[in-house]
Amino acid sequence: MNDIGNTAVLRACGVSKEHGQGQSLVRAVDELDLAVPTGEMLAVMGPSGCGKSTLLHLLGGLERPTGGEVWLAGQRIDTMSERALARLRRRSIGFVFQAFHLMEELSAAENVELPALLAGCSARTAKRRAHELLERVGLADRARHLPPELSGGQRQRVAIARALVNEPLVILADEPSGNLDTAATLEVLRLFEELRSAGQTLLIVTHDERVAATADRLISMRDGTFVDDTRLSDSATMRLGDLIGLED
């Protein structure tokens, strides 16, 4: 446990989260232990309501656990103040949501600049980084478009660019392909694949076997606990090339 813990960038120890109380108490996450080593792409799968989103929120400091500890890069985060948590999210964590959650009044480029500006980057640096990232996700020509003018897949790529802008330690993605059609899912997968090869640590919650199949490791969840933790061998890990056939 300890030796994994030392190399793990993200670590949860006996972490629990309960919602509600009394009769309606739900234990969404039940004393989970998890360590995510740097550079790993981890997929979490499980039926709806098994606690995947809650786990992600706990790991990203969006919610506080009712028990246990969460560590990020050697820092315990579940006891941090709101302000410190905000700073941590801004610098060390990139969220990607199923519903994209872009600011509708801001253009694609401005959405990507947002966390950089919050972190205190100069306007010029933020602009340059946003431009680079939009190019990387293939949307340089859509930089000035507002989210409602973009397709679902394009919006999700903007969201990924936004998650990357402060070079976070970990990307946490909650069903990133949940609202996307097959073609758009493949675009997003291609992007994750690229990030993985670049050494980016990624934790992806998904319903989608194709997404899970690209991971290094697959965890299955049920009722707030892990029921399976499989390391996908290199050969078993499906590469993007194999996925193209799934389109129809």
Binding site: R83, A86, R87, R89, R90, R91, I93, H101
Partner: peptide, 15 residues
């Protein structure tokens, strides 16, 4: 919703 979004990308309560 706007606030939630800003928080998720790391805006502090003061910001």
């Amino acid at each position: 919703h706007r606030v939630g979004l800003l928080k998720a990308v790391g805006a502090t309560p003061g910001q």
